[in-house]
Design a protein around this nucleic acid. Sequence first.
DNA 1: GTTTGTGAAACGATTCACAGCT
DNA 2: AGCTGTGAATCGTTTCACAAAC
Lengths: 206, 206
Amino acid sequence: MRKVAESTIRRLSLYLRLLEEFEGQGIATVSSGALAGRGGTTSAQVRKDLSFFGSFGKRGLGYPVLELVAHLRGILGLDRRYRVAMIGAGKIGSALVQYRGFRQRGFDVAAIFDVDPAKIGKAWNGLTVQDIAALEEVVKAEKVDMAVVATPPDVAQPIADRLVALGIKAILNFAPVQITVPDDVVVKTVNLALELETLSYALTNR
Amino acid sequence: MRKVAESTIRRLSLYLRLLEEFEGQGIATVSSGALAGRGGTTSAQVRKDLSFFGSFGKRGLGYPVLELVAHLRGILGLDRRYRVAMIGAGKIGSALVQYRGFRQRGFDVAAIFDVDPAKIGKAWNGLTVQDIAALEEVVKAEKVDMAVVATPPDVAQPIADRLVALGIKAILNFAPVQITVPDDVVVKTVNLALELETLSYALTNR
DNA sequence: GTTTGTGAAACGATTCACAGCT
DNA sequence: AGCTGTGAATCGTTTCACAAAC
């Protein structure tokens, strides 16, 4: 089961969302074609993606919605909640902390950090912004599972190093720099300017 | 020159950022290896990526930093500024409007829209939040090039339809839904929950 | 001697197509 | 008859390796 492409995982997330919609509509069974249609892919792709993890469907019938939802939650590790540390109480950090989608999908912000004395001590969405100096202490006490790095680019790497030293194995990085970590740590970088630049390229080359 | 992989374009953006750093340090020439090192890729990849667009280097020497910066800006369409409409003055919209990285890299927010009467008329970063009803009128008057959709999921598709009807060809979508548009329109979706879910998967399967 | 530019090889992901189950 | 599960074929991307340029 090791070594599944990231693109496959992203599609599984997408299928899960669609299945939850189907579930809400009381639909009991769904075919690979139906899942593909609204997910922007093909039925063969859906079947291949699922087949990496088992055979969940019935030939001639399709996939039982409820069961498949449960399986996908298990595969994606979404049958539990995660405690997230937000590093950086700037614009992006602020937006993310308040973003309901995170909590809805099982991710709870357990602590917020910043360097700015003007921000430290302020209450934010029920949490107090803490001094980044207390990172080690608080991350341990709060049993943090993941970190979101929303800092200026120059401190992203040193912060990541401290997180890695603390044993954090998953980092979502919004700083516009590449972060280097050991092999057993996963970093996903979301670079907003980069996304706009791919659009700029597409606009230019038509 | 048509049909270059998106992964290539994303790396070009990355190279551009690194080259700008080198430029700031007064470094005149850089090898593919040096570009690769800090960009998380290989020298062969760098050379291949660049070779899609021309040959910019000197054998035995490397690439002239200033020239390559200019070339990459041209390739990515970053030798001009873009006028961006922000749809949705919620948390994410607010963070993005204030995000300096956008303006720094040539993207100016030209208008902000919302449906909420409590928000309409408020000044934000020098711009007044406008009624979404005025979308058509304002987008034309402001000569908008691109749109950022930061709305609740249920209105993302109808908004995208109106943008497409207005002739907008590039949309950056932060709503957690798949948006369907004609072939000549580019949509990039950034789904924050999805990114966390790929981390959850990685954490679970080790 | 160093480093580019690029065909060729290797690798990885998607699509095809069909046997097998319901 | 309908739809899954999956090997085989196809397509696309990355890596290799080396001749050519400096």
